[in-house]
Simulated assay, not measured.
Amino acid sequence: MTQELPEIALEDKGSKGRYFLRAPDGAEAEMTFTKVGEHQIIIDHTEVPDAFRGQGAGLRLVTRAVEDARSAGKKIIPLCPFAAAQFRRHPEWADVLKG
Rank of each mutant, 00 (worst) to 15 (best):
P49M: 00
D44H: 05
P78I: 03
E28Q: 12
E7C: 04
A29M: 00
L97M: 10
T63Q: 14
K75W: 13
S71A: 15
Q55V: 04
R18Y: 00
G56F: 05
D95G: 00
E11Y: 05
D44T: 09
E47T: 09
F20E: 03
E30I: 11
E7N: 11
M1A: 08
F52S: 08
G14P: 01
W93K: 05
W93F: 09
D68K: 11
L21I: 10
Q55Y: 00
A85Q: 12
R70V: 09
G14A: 03
R89Q: 14
E67Y: 04
K13H: 13
F33L: 10
I77A: 02
R18S: 02
K75V: 13
F52N: 02
E47P: 01
A72D: 15
H45P: 04
G26P: 00
L79A: 10
T63V: 12
L97Q: 09
V48C: 01
A83Y: 03
D25G: 05
D95S: 11
G14W: 06
A65C: 12
P6S: 05
E11W: 05
L97T: 05
K98G: 08
V48D: 03
E38T: 14
H90G: 02
L10P: 09
C80V: 06
F87T: 08
Q86D: 05
Q40I: 13
K98T: 04
M1E: 13
P49T: 08
R64E: 14
D12M: 09
R88Q: 15
R64F: 10
F87I: 07
I8S: 06
A29C: 03
F20T: 08
P78W: 05
A69D: 08
I43R: 07
K75R: 15
K98M: 15
W93D: 00
W93G: 01
L5V: 00
D50I: 15
G56M: 05
G99A: 14
R70Q: 11
E67C: 09
K74M: 15
I43N: 03
V48M: 05
G58K: 01
D68T: 14
G14F: 07
A69I: 09
I42K: 08
A84M: 07
A23Q: 05
R70Y: 02
D68W: 08
T2I: 10
A51F: 03
P6M: 06
F87N: 00
P91T: 10
E11C: 08
A72G: 13
A85G: 14
K75T: 14
F87S: 03
M31E: 04
G26F: 00
T46V: 02
V48P: 07
T63G: 11
G17W: 03
E30Y: 01
I77E: 06
A72Y: 11
E28Y: 06
G56D: 05
D12I: 09
E38I: 13
E11H: 10
D25C: 09
I8V: 12
D95R: 04
A65H: 01
E92F: 06
G26M: 08
T2K: 15
M31P: 07
R22C: 12
G26Q: 06
F82D: 10
K74F: 13
E30V: 12
G56Q: 02
E4I: 07
I76M: 10
